[in-house]
């Protein structure tokens, strides 16, 4: 009969109208990202052996680096590494080419910037202290200090919440301690925010505090463990 299809359509939309929604509220509710999701390209300077394979693999000249000869040996070392993200095709060719997993894609997909030159990510490695990596996102410079600090704090807190172990790894001596510290921070929000603030303001102090946290926890555990032993 004519009109049946119309009624069926009305029924379907009505059913969906009272049913569940499928959208998510994006900034509050983050989308679920698969493991292999290709977000922002990240460069882990410590692993780089300056082989240049990534720049050769890249189809669109996104990657470039400066290197210099290490005195007295054939080895090269990195001076700076630039990812010009605006030309990136997110094709994974550089990641596949890299022999040491220096390059990888993070899950950070919010890559838009207000200025074109902010898109460029430059990693500069000073010669003296290779441990203190300066990640210079160029666009951050002209911002007033206050907001910058706030942003840093927020970023650090987020990092701590998301991936605490990796973030605090440099604060303590070994992996085990890092794991303990991560556990503490995840449990206690106050400690987490304090640690985040300290890590930005004063690294040395943060390290001390971190060590203190870890030691206290270790002691507690010892006590707890001892009690358990006794009960056995």
């Amino acid at each position: 009969m004519k009109g049946q299809g119309l009624l069926k359509g009305l029924y379907i939309t009505l059913k969906r109208a009272v049913g569940k929604d499928i959208t998510i509220q994006y900034p509050e509710q983050m989308p679920y990202l698969q493991d292999r999701f290709r977000g922002c390209l990240h460069f882990d300077y410590t692993k780089c052996i300056v082989c240049g394979l990534c720049t050769k693999a890249c189809p669109n000249n996104v990657l470039s680096y400066e290197s210099r000869q290490v005195e007295g040996s054939k080895k090269k070392e990195l001076v700076s590494y630039t990812i010009d993200l605006q030309y990136c095709l997110f094709c994974n060719l550089c990641v596949e080419a890299c022999p040491t997993n220096t390059l990888y894609f993070t899950h950070d997909f919010e890559l838009s910037r207000y200025q074109r030159d902010q898109i460029k990510i430059v990693y500069e490695i000073p010669k003296e202290e290779p441990s203190a990596v300066k990640v210079d996102l160029k666009g951050d410079a002209p911002e007033p200090d206050e907001t910058k600090k706030e942003k840093q704090l927020a970023a650090m807190t987020a990092a701590l919440q998301k991936n605490p172990q990796k973030t605090v790894r440099k604060m303590v001596e070994n992996d085990e301690d890092a794991e303990i510290l991560a556990g503490i921070l995840l449990e206690d929000e106050q400690k987490l925010s304090r640690m985040a603030a300290l890590m930005i303001a004063d690294r040395e102090k943060a390290k001390k505090v971190a060590v203190a946290f870890v030691n206290k926890e270790k002691k507690d555990r010892l006590k707890g463990g001892g009690a358990e032993d006794e009960s056995k």
């Binding site: 698969q34 292999r36 999701f37 997110f90 094709c91």
Partner: peptide, 25 residues
């Protein structure tokens, strides 16, 4: 996204195969 990491323009295939094996999911 599971297989290649990209949703729309997935450069997943490579000359000689595909870039990575299928994930368990």
């Amino acid at each position: 996204e599971m297989t290649s990491g990209q949703r729309l323009i997935a450069s997943y295939m490579r000359i000689g195969g595909v870039s990575e094996d299928l994930p368990d999911t």
